[in-house]
C-alpha cells in the first residue's frame, strides 16, 4: 500500500456521503411534495406543486442511482450485505418510486380523470420516504453478518426505532417541500405551505431530538462516540448548530420570508446527516464491516476517481444551470401538456 491507496476508501466514503446528502435534499423536497398532496384537495394547488418540480425530478432521482451504483462500485461487499439485508424496504422503495415517478407524466396525460395518479403520486412518495427511513433505521441498528454475508431474517430491520426513523423522514421531507413551495409558488398553495411549515418544523425538531437521545441510550458505542473525552469538546457544536438553525428557520417563517427557510432546513438536514455519519464511522455496515473491509479494488477506486473528479463538476454545473433556468416562482400556466 503506497501513496493514495490507504486513503481511497475514505475519499470514496466522502464522495458517496456527498451523493447521498445531495439525494436526500434534492429528492427530499421532491418526495415531500407528494407527501403534501395528502394535505390539499385543491386542483390548482396540486398542479402547482407538481409543476414546481417537474423539470427537476428526473435529475433528482439520478442521485439515488449514483448512491446505489456508487456503493456497488466503491464498496461492493457493503452493497451486497446491505441490499440483501434490507431487501424488503429497498423493494418497497423502488416500487413506490415507480408509481410516483410515472405519475409525473401520467397525471397530465390522464386529465381530467387523474384521481388514480394523484393517489399514486401521494402514496408512492410517502411510501418511498417511509422506506428510506426504514433503511436508515435498519442500518443504524446494525446488520447481522457471518462470513462476509448477511445472516439475518427478512424483517430484522423492523423495530420501533426504524419506524420512528421512517416517520421522521416523512416529516422532514414534508418540511423541505413546504419550504420549497414558499420559495417557488404563489397563490393558494403558497399560503397553504405557510400554514404547514411551522407545524412540520416542530415535528422535525421532535424527531431529531428523539433520535439524538434514543441512539446513545440504546447503543453504548454511539454514547461513547459522542460523550467520551475528548470527542465531546469537538462534537458539541453540532447539536447546537442544529438547534440554532431550527430557531432561525422558525423566525424566518414567522417573518414570512420566502427563500431563507428552505436553505435553513437544508442546513438542518446536513447537520443531522453529519451527526449520523459521526455515529457510524468507520463502519459502513454498522458494527460489522468498516470502510476498509468493504472497499473495492484500489484499481477500481482510482479508475472511478478520475472519472468523478472530471465529471462530477460538470454534472453539478449543468444541474445548477437547470435550476437557474427555472429559477424564481412558477409562472402561471407553465407546464407543458
Amino acid at each position: 500500500m503506497t501513496g493514495i491507496e490507504p486513503y481511497l476508501p475514505l475519499i470514496w466514503a466522502g464522495l458517496l456521503a456527498t451523493a447521498v446528502a445531495l439525494y436526500v435534499i434534492l429528492d427530499g423536497f421532491d418526495l415531500g411534495l407528494g407527501i403534501l398532496f395528502w394535505t390539499t384537495r385543491d386542483e390548482t394547488s396540486r398542479d402547482d406543486m407538481m409543476s414546481s418540480v417537474a423539470p427537476f425530478w428526473d435529475g433528482n432521482e439520478t442521485w439515488l442511482i449514483l448512491g446505489g451504483g456508487g456503493l456497488f462500485a466503491a464498496f461492493p461487499i457493503a452493497y451486497a450485505i446491505v441490499m440483501s439485508a434490507l431487501y424488503v424496504p429497498i423493494i418497497l422503495m423502488l416500487l413506490a418510486l415507480i408509481l410516483r415517478g410515472v405519475a409525473f407524466e401520467f397525471r397530465w396525460a390522464a386529465k381530467p380523470t387523474h384521481k388514480l395518479w394523484d393517489f399514486a403520486f401521494a402514496a408512492g412518495s410517502t411510501l418511498a420516504a417511509l422506506a428510506q427511513g426504514f433503511v436508515l433505521g435498519g442500518l443504524i441498528q446494525g446488520i447481522e453478518v457471518k462470513d462476509g454475508a448477511f445472516a439475518g431474517g427478512p424483517f430484522d430491520w423492523l423495530s420501533p426505532f426504524s419506524v420512528a426513523c421512517g416517520l421522521g423522514l416523512v416529516t422532514g421531507y414534508a418540511l423541505l417541500a413546504s419550504c420549497w413551495l414558499l420559495m417557488k409558488t404563489s397563490g393558494a398553495i403558497h399560503l397553504h405551505a405557510q400554514r404547514l411549515a411551522p407545524m412540520l418544523l416542530l415535528g422535525v425538531a421532535g424527531f431529531a431530538a428523539l433520535v439524538s437521545l434514543w441512539t446513545p441510550l440504546r447503543y453504548p458505542f454511539i454514547a461513547e462516540r459522542w460523550f467520551s473525552m475528548p470527542n465531546i469538546f469537538f462534537l458539541w457544536p453540532l447539536p447546537l448548530a442544529t438547534a440554532w438553525l431550527a430557531y432561525q428557520v422558525y423566525r424566518a417563517l414567522q417573518r414570512g420570508e420566502a427563500v431563507k427557510p428552505f436553505f435553513g432546513v437544508v442546513g438542518i438536514f446536513l447537520c443531522c446527516f453529519v451527526g449520523l455519519a459521526i455515529s457510524a464511522y468507520p463502519y459502513l455496515v454498522p458494527r460489522s464491516i468498516d470502510l476498509w473491509q468493504a472497499a473495492g479494488a484500489p484499481g477500481s477506486l482510482i479508475f472511478m476517481l478520475f472519472g468523478v473528479l472530471f465529471l462530477l463538476p460538470i454534472v453539478l454545473g449543468y444541474t445548477a444551470f437547470v435550476y437557474w433556468t427555472f429559477r424564481g416562482r412558477l409562472r402561471p400556466g407553465e407546464g407543458y401538456h
Binding site: 439520478t62 456497488f72 472511478m304 462530477l312 454534472v315 437547470v322
Partner: peptide, 16 residues
Amino acid sequence: AYEVLTAFFLEATFLG
C-alpha cells in the same frame, strides 16, 4: 458508475 456520471445525469437533467 460511469454510466450514471456520463449518461444518466446528462439525459435526466437536460430532459427538464
